[in-house]
Design a protein around this nucleic acid. Sequence first.
DNA 1: TTTGATGT
Length: 287
Amino acid sequence: MGRSLLRLRQQGRRLGIAVLFVVAGAGLWEFQERQHQDDYTWMGVPTWDGFHPTTFHRVLRNDGFLVGWSDVRVNPLWVSYQLEAVDDDTRIGSRPNFQADWRTLWPITTDSYSGSGYDRGHMAPNYAIAAVHGRSAQVDTFLMSNMSPQRPNLNRQLWQRLEQSVMDHFAPRFDRLQVITGPIFPEHFMDNVFNRVGFVEVPEAFYKIIVAPHADAPLALAFIMPQDVRGNEPLANYLVTINEIEERTGLNFFPNLSPEIEAVLEGELRTQGWALEEVSKRPGRFQ
DNA sequence: TTTGATGT
């Protein structure tokens, strides 16, 4: 009787130590994952308030960028990456092939979009990521988890012009840029729930937030561009505040910002410092 | 087709 009690106590102690290791290990992993994500993203990765199935997501780590993946929308709700001007882009290789991403769990294959009338629209862009972060990062931008259905006129013209302006015009003006971009869906989930390319829900618009992260006086430009565009519109037509994007996505961008700086950066539409007018009407490459 | 993607 006494011996079995002793053995039980020993087993209990071993179990306790094992649990301690698991908890400590999980905590360490969580801490390092957070650390890694924060290293990638100025002022914290996007968060959401409360429990909403449509904003719930998990973070996929790639070379050069992070993806906030939603298994409900079957879309990247956001991608986040940093850019800087580069001297030499001649080392960039040819366009890699699109490839399925098993981490999404959903079977999104490279031909899921075929015949749908929608392009496989990059969220983290091929050119900028390749130029700044190298070949393996470029390959990652062709994962299907980085795609969202875009109308050709948007993807190949208006959106392309915006991405080209980010890399060729905005990046050289600042040391570093933080970019967050992603889709916007109709307000009521059920209205759009069957509007899909394969399993992938079709957005009604896309946003892009570009921040020049100076410590005390960061600058930001933000855009919302709808699917239905001709493609040759001035970029400036689509300027919005970050608050508007937060309202339409349900996400909270840059959660680590102090309330005072956040109020100005996210609530006010300020274009000083970006010289947007120099590129707003610049034609695209592919028209 | 050198910053976009499709379909032949």
